[in-house]
């Protein structure tokens, strides 16, 4: 639980069916359950105009639940990186009125939103729901490298190795939280690393 938060920290909601004919869902992990939960509230025929992109875990959990929704298209890329070229094209060619729904881990929501922003989609028009891990995507302010799936506080930068304080300050443009050297003033001070974003 994050007790006190700051304004740049994203706030996620609960997916709800939006008016429109074209719906694009992007989800990973437990995000599939956000879609199936929403399906109960959707009007008949809603998924006839929907594409669901789901990045499954290695066991393929939740795939059959999504198949049961009978979306117009179900795409199962193995990773977000492998999805990105296709997603960029979809967003570039999208008609006005395409509705975007993002659900799952914070890293997935952030990176899909980043691609949408680059395609000119207004971030406030995007439905989001956070499910699953609180792991953070972090940019090292010093070397600019991104470290994925950060669960500890502090956390080591996977590029330059500095020990970083993972801040709540978040950039949609970078789809990342900011990491700042935690012991810059005295490197001999090594605070204990604790599980903070399970």
């Amino acid at each position: 639980m994050t007790a006190k938060t700051i304004i740049s920290r994203p706030i996620y909601g609960t997916l709800s069916p939006q008016p429109g004919k074209h719906h694009l869902f992007i989800a990973d992990a437990e995000g599939a359950l956000a879609i199936t939960d929403m399906a109960g509230k959707a009007p008949p025929g809603f998924f006839d105009g929907a594409e669901i992109v789901f990045i499954p875990d290695p066991e393929g959990k939740h795939i059959s639940a999504l198949e049961a929704l009978e979306p117009a298209q179900l795409h199962l890329p193995p990773s977000f990186a492998s999805l990105l070229p296709r997603l960029r094209q979809t967003l570039t060619n999208a008609h006005m009125g395409l509705r975007l729904y993002l659900a799952g881990t914070e890293g997935l929501i952030g990176q899909a939103m980043q691609a949408a922003l680059e395609a000119g989609v207004d971030h406030t028009s995007i439905e989001t729901e956070h499910r699953g891990s609180l792991a953070r995507r972090m940019q090292c302010v010093h070397c600019k490298g991104i470290t994925e799936n950060v669960t500890t506080q502090p956390a080591a930068c996977s590029h330059c190795g500095l020990l970083l304080l993972v801040r709540d300050h978040y950039s949609r443009r970078l789809a990342a939280f900011q990491g700042v050297c935690i012991n810059a003033e005295d490197r001999s001070e090594i605070p204990p690393m604790e599980e903070a974003f399970p």
């Binding site: 700051i6 740049s8 302010v141 950039s171 949609r172």
Partner: peptide, 12 residues
């Protein structure tokens, strides 16, 4: 880090 943010976000 802050480029592209609005007034409240960059002062967060």
């Amino acid at each position: 880090f802050d480029i592209g943010m609005n007034f409240f976000e960059w002062h967060a």
